[in-house]
Simulated assay, not measured.
Amino acid sequence: MNQLNATSEQWKSLYEAAAAFKQAECWRYATNSHVFGVENPFNKEIGYCCILGNGGEMYGLAVYLGTESLETLLSMLNRTQETDPMFSQHCLMLSFESRTELYPAELKQIKELGLKFRGANAWPTFRLYEPGFVPWPMQNEEEVQFLSLALEQTIEVVEAFKNNLDAIFIREDNVFLTRVSEGDRQNLVWTDQWLKPKILEKATEYQANPIDEIRLAKAKKMLKGFVGIWEVDCFFAYIPIDEGQRPYYPMMGLIVDQESEQILQFGLTEKSGIQGKMAGLFLEIIEKAQVVPKEIWVCREEIYHYLKQILISFEIQVCLKSELAAIEDARVEMMDYLIDRI
């Protein structure tokens, strides 16, 4: 998608689609488990729609973008999600909120468009959710246009199936009811198809930037011996950092001595920099303490890849565990420490 901002006409269309969606009260008929797809005519990606409001708490529509996001949604519905959804969701979301929940820019836009809303669960918000970022008001014109189309097609699906919505539950062959369009953008013709999600491309190999071999050699020369076990992990921190155009959640790297539960090293960085950050933290503590652990324990394979060059150089063993007790205690301690200083 390009990064052009949506026009006033495109925003008007989106607010109109939101109003029609609210008037249709799609949540009266569908639960968040009635998942279906809408093809984006601009890039052919499938957005998987989840109607919110049947439980009477939050009203709106979430459109999960692509297969990976669909898997996140299904894991949440099946209660198998290991990562906090705040850090894993990638979706466009309409929700109806109170006025106090809107950003100043959203209120300004509503005023400029000459729209008026009043009361709780009455103010439309259109947010982009991306892993590692604070949910943020949508701006991109193709996102605005696609959410408009998704709302329109959601109304069509509910109207067509409202007497038997369970017919659109996921079938045993893992296909989803998907609204697919033909024609140009001004004259789209929509039809129903039952489609399997696209196969995810193989994930790129986790790789930190190469570490200077001379630096490694110097650290090895200064070594005084081996110690016990270090637990190593990284995770999103619940502390938004407001830098640049959009606040983000940093990732924290943490290294803890298993026996003493002492925090040996920690650091914060953007998600994109976590590979290099983890390698840097690990080597820094080796240089400072002049010891290396006999083993490290990790609960995710990617941690091994972040540290691979160092681990091979110092002949450190790695154990993959389902949980890390010392890390978990340290995580709580660090979060309390950082939150107290906000």
Rank of each mutant, 00 (worst) to 15 (best):
M251Y: 07
E284F: 00
L200A: 13
N40H: 01
E141W: 00
G37M: 05
A20W: 14
P250K: 09
M251I: 15
A325M: 14
P197Y: 12
C299S: 15
Q317C: 14
Y129K: 08
E45R: 07
L307Y: 12
E112F: 02
G228H: 05
E71H: 15
I274G: 01
P210M: 11
I241Y: 10
G60Q: 01
K196C: 05
S88L: 01
F226Q: 06
K271F: 10
P41V: 02
E9K: 10
L200R: 11
R127N: 06
H34M: 02
I51W: 09
F133T: 07
T178L: 07
L73I: 11
E284D: 07
I255Y: 03
A19W: 12
E68S: 15
Y238A: 04
Y48W: 07
E57V: 08
R215V: 11
E315T: 08
H34Y: 09
M252C: 05
R185M: 14
T100Q: 09
E25V: 05
A18Q: 09
M76I: 14
A237V: 10
E106L: 00
G244K: 10
L216N: 07
G119F: 02
A18H: 14
G244W: 13
S8M: 00
L195V: 02
L264T: 07
L177C: 13
I199F: 13
A219N: 09
E172M: 15
T80I: 05
R341K: 15
L254G: 00
F133P: 02
K221P: 12
G253F: 06
E323K: 13
Y15Q: 06
I310H: 00
K202E: 15
A62G: 08
N163F: 14
V63C: 10
K277Q: 06
A330L: 08
Y248D: 07
I155V: 10
L195M: 03
L92D: 11
R99D: 01
E243I: 15
K108L: 11
V38E: 12
W194H: 12
I310N: 04
N187C: 03
I239C: 03
W230V: 09
K224P: 04
V189C: 12
E270P: 06
C26P: 03
E323M: 14
F235S: 08
N187Y: 15
G60N: 05
F176L: 11
F117M: 04
L320I: 14
T269Q: 08
C26F: 09
R127E: 03
A150P: 08
M76S: 12
L115S: 08
A6N: 01
Y48M: 03
S272P: 12
V189G: 07
A217N: 14
